[in-house]
Simulated scan of single mutants.
Amino acid sequence: MNIVKLNSHLEINGSTDELIIKEEGIKNVIKVENQVMKILLLLIEYDGKLVEKGTFIREIWDGNKLSGEKALTKNIFKIRNILKTNKIENVALETIPKKGYRLVVVDDPINSRESGRVRYVIAVGLIFIGVVGFFFFKKESERPKLHYFNIDEIGNDSIIYLGNEKLQIIKNDSLIEVSNVTKSKSQD
């Protein structure tokens, strides 16, 4: 089988059962067991889609469910260990509970981290806009209400007093002269 290039960092050579990791111009070749390679090749063939456990057992262990289930679990563990040990962050083996597995490949882990940062910045920005909007509308609702009245209905013998957010129309004849009130208090 020819070499399968998963991304710019990882290639798989199915004919020699080797993983080829390229990092900063350096090639690291890892030899894997034949069953591990068959599992990887089947996952690659499904191109990121779910590969059911039954498919692995049928294709790799000729339908022998008894030995196939144990071997599959054991080899999936080996693949994850290889990925972790060799710090291959741009390939992940995802478990779909009670169904199977799928291979997730990211071409460039730096770009995936940057897109995560972009999503973070966007989320923070949206939260900021939400908070500012909340305070703007809250402050808007706390503003005093405007009171409208028809000034033509008030005669020349009245004054308008707005105190404690309550509009009062006071007739001139009910007013006490302030200067008299002040004098009477000072005489006491």
Rank of each mutant, 00 (worst) to 15 (best):
K98G: 00
D173R: 11
E114W: 08
K171P: 06
I170T: 08
K70C: 00
V91C: 04
T55Y: 04
H9K: 13
H9C: 08
I154C: 02
G116H: 02
N2E: 14
I176R: 11
K166M: 10
D173C: 01
T73A: 15
F56C: 01
D188E: 11
L19S: 01
I12S: 03
P109V: 02
V132C: 06
V32T: 04
I160S: 05
V32S: 04
L72G: 01
E94N: 06
I96T: 07
K139A: 15
N13C: 05
K171S: 11
I110N: 09
V118M: 10
Y120L: 14
G48R: 00
I159G: 09
T95R: 07
R117Q: 10
I20W: 00
Q35H: 11
I44K: 00
V36N: 01
R113G: 09
K145I: 14
A123P: 00
V91R: 00
I12T: 02
G116S: 14
M1P: 05
N86T: 06
G116T: 06
V29D: 06
I110D: 10
I110V: 14
L146D: 11
V32L: 02
F77V: 10
N164G: 03
L83R: 01
N7C: 09
I154M: 08
L50D: 03
L66D: 11
S186V: 13
R102A: 00
E114Q: 09
I154K: 02
Y101E: 03
S112N: 15
A92N: 15
E52Y: 13
H9N: 15
L50N: 07
E140H: 12
P97W: 06
N172T: 11
F128C: 11
S15F: 08
L66P: 08
K49N: 13
S141T: 09
S186D: 14
G130A: 07
N81V: 07
L103N: 03
N81M: 11
V178W: 04
I76L: 11
K70E: 13
Y161S: 14
G14C: 05
L162H: 12
V118I: 15
E140F: 12
K166L: 12
V131K: 03
N86K: 02
I3R: 04
K171V: 06
L40R: 01
L126F: 15
T85R: 14
I88Y: 00
I3N: 07
N81E: 14
I39L: 01
L162R: 08
N75E: 13
V132Q: 10
E52D: 15
D188T: 07
I129Y: 09
E23F: 14
K166H: 05
D188Y: 12
L93Q: 02
H147N: 13
R58S: 13
L146I: 15
F134H: 05
N28V: 09
K87L: 12
Y161A: 11
T85P: 00
F134P: 00
K53G: 08
K74G: 02
M37I: 07
M37H: 03
L19G: 02
V124P: 01
E94W: 05
S158P: 04
L40C: 01
L103I: 04
P97V: 12
I30G: 00
F135M: 08
D152W: 09
E24N: 15
V36T: 13
F135H: 08
I26S: 10
E33W: 00
I129C: 10
I154S: 02
N13Q: 05
N156W: 04
S112V: 11
K166V: 10
K27H: 13
